[in-house]
Amino acid sequence: MAIALRGVRKTYKSDHGPVEAVAGVSFDVADGEFVSLLGPSGCGKSTLLMMLAGLEAPSAGHLAVGGQPVAGPRRDAGLVFQDATLLPWLSARENVLFPIRMMRLREEAYRERADRLLATVGLRDFASRRPAQLSGGMRQRVALCRALIHDPAFLLMDEPFSALDAITRDEMGLVLLDLWERSQEPGRRKTGVFITHSIREALLLSDRVLVMGRRPSVLTADVPVPFPRPRAPGVQDTPEFTAIVARLRGMIEHNLRDAA
């Protein structure tokens, strides 16, 4: 299902008067497309994602998913946050099944799928462990599986790897790339929106990168990613990859200079 935003604004009330977090953003994400929103921290990217998930209402503008305006929380979205936000007293498997429980669906019907997802991200032997017994990267893998358990039409990710160390982070990028490309079945393609401030991560994972400026955020560039899928990890070492990284970095630095 496609996503369309037209002139979306979000203003918060604060003690110092209204604060504009998102200032008139318009873009489209095609059905089955993976798009990254790239920008510095605190540029209103998270607010944008919360509005897409239907967890916050825009102050102005129009937001539609699959042709329908977003009116409230959508069950067909999978969410991943910066922190894994797992329930500490549940096992990895129970955490993956948590959305099923909250949506009052039959857990037994999804148990096998939960184990399959955990195996895909290399956690076959850790399904019964609690979060405290898992590393940060493993916890975030559990969160990815949890977001995919009900086979959502959208995957919305808010800087899911930015709390991890650099090595784990690179590894998680490849895990997500693999998970994403495997889950794109013909006839039932997922649409992904990925928020990040890592240029390389955005480029590795996306079909298109949207560059955002400082708060209040506006879109400053729309860059298509030319690498075909399925992508191999080696794509990151090609000269084209390095060239696009440099171009995107130039755009972000330009935005920061303008804001200063």
């Binding site: 919360m50 998930a53 069950r75 979205a77 946050f81 922190d83």
Partner: peptide, 26 residues
Amino acid sequence: APPEMLRLCRAYSASPWQVFTAVRFP
């Protein structure tokens, strides 16, 4: 309870009673 956990419950349209028994009270 972490606000993001509560947000997640809201996203999956959990009832207030579910949120209480599965998240907030534990």
